[in-house]
Design a protein around this nucleic acid. Structure first.
Lengths: 242, 242
DNA sequence: GTCAACATTTTTCTCGAAATTAATCTGCTT
DNA sequence: AAGCAGATTAATTTCGAGAAAAATGTTGAC
């Protein structure tokens, strides 16, 4: 079974709460709602065109996901960002992804191998490091990249691992979007992917996990360098970028 | 710093939502609200004496925690239980606890060692396997047991690890309470604890982690044996035990 | 007897207003 | 001027009623 790890709420949204949650999540992930900015119910009500209880419920969903904080009797805020937090997220990502990869390599069958090869092929077709792609295709590349990584783990059947991993991916995605990451660091991501795939298909768990760890750390090091420590203590309220 | 891992919502509860969430959580953990039973808003409103929106928000908090499920346009339910789910939870517990222990052993200072020794001492004072304790004291023993395990991990500073670990502990606690676990399996838990502590203080990470893994598996094996596969497909609604 | 379409009941979801609490301002005293 | 008490404003939280949807029950045709 293939999970959608980046956005579990990508399905049609049968209720207003789910729709609001998706919009809010996107606005926080992209930085439209800046870290630590106050989320005033009255303001957001008009912004998203929903009632207060509905909005409140959507915010509550994001609280347990760690994108929003809520303190006692003084409302909601966008979760703060910090380098330490990002490093903690990365450590956990590595822990969970290598665990899932280990288990997949132990348990994976032929279908699993097929899914990996297929996802790798689709990704290769528009790898930005292989051939030029415009920014329209970049979103598509990210999707296929996520799908490739998901395929590697898809023989692991621990739902709790995927639940937590999804949360971490969303957090990670926020840091990636918040930082202006130039691609000056020369990387051959395509080669990294290929090597991970080969080690995986050879059932060499140790090598595959080591490669995966390096892969994640490299993806993430760009942020670590550029991310100055978060906004000042008075990151004032309702700040909306652009 | 020492986290309270079992119940992060043990503080006074400054809002009705938090209070309701705490009550609901307790009722689900103890089985008063049976697995898969429907959580009808109208019914629970009178049970907890709060309005619908407030109740709804409390339920939403439990959704992301995995104690409640909510499907599209057809309400809330108590999360189902299954042997497979419990095994998955246990695997994740082991993964996270050994990771945290590893990190603690690497980074722990003298204060950390002091906390461990202190927590062990307090626990030893009323270990039910050492001397008889009445059921009143059993709750206290559980608290001290949790505190001991928390002390072992308290030099790990990854907030995400503790967030996830807390969720897993709550889930695990539910399975433990739901099953009637007799203590026929002869165990010397006190000795297990002592050995974990000794290996930890000797900074022998491999041994400490292995002992911890065995410790968790033993604690949990009782449930695995007794837990028949969950209630039938028609675990009807609003079932309230006792 | 089976099935489908319609009507009724039940339940979930949504909204805006009222109550409660925190934050801000004003004026007074030291 | 600084600090404090009370009053005013603003924000959060809570409630219950109304709208929307699902579940249930009924009737009628084949």
């Amino acid at each position: 079974m293939l999970h959608n790890l980046v956005d579990p709420s990508e399905q049609p949204a049968k209720t207003l709460v789910e729709a609001a949650r998706a919009k809010l999540q996107m606005d926080i992930l992209t930085g439209t709602l800046a870290p630590e900015s106050k989320l005033r119910v009255e303001h957001l009500k008009s912004r998203y065109g929903i009632g207060s209880s509905t909005l409140r419920e959507a915010l509550t969903l994001l609280v347990t996901d760690g994108l929003v904080t809520s303190e006692g009797q003084r409302g909601f805020r966008v979760a703060p960002v910090s380098l330490a937090d990002f490093q903690a997220i990365t450590e956990m990502r590595i822990l969970l992804e290598t665990k899932a990869l280990h288990q997949s390599i132990e348990q994976g069958d032929d279908d699993w191998e097929g899914r990996i090869v297929a996802a790798f092929h689709r990704l290769s077709k528009l790898d930005p490091y292989v051939k030029d792609v415009d920014s329209d295709q970049l979103g598509e590349w990210e999707k296929r990249n996520d799908a490739f990584h998901a395929s590697l783990l898809s023989a692991c059947d621990n739902p709790w691992l995927f639940r937590f991993y999804g949360t971490l991916l969303r957090q990670s995605s926020r840091y990636l979007r918040l930082s202006i990451h130039d691609h000056t660091v020369p990387r051959d991501v395509h080669k990294e992917h290929r090597m991970i795939m080969e080690a995986t298909l050879n059932r060499d768990a140790e090598a595959a996990c080591k490669l995966t760890e390096d892969h994640i750390r490299r993806t993430v090091s760009v942020v670590s360098l550029l991310c100055e420590d978060g906004a000042g203590p008075d990151a004032s309220d309702a700040k909306v970028a652009r």
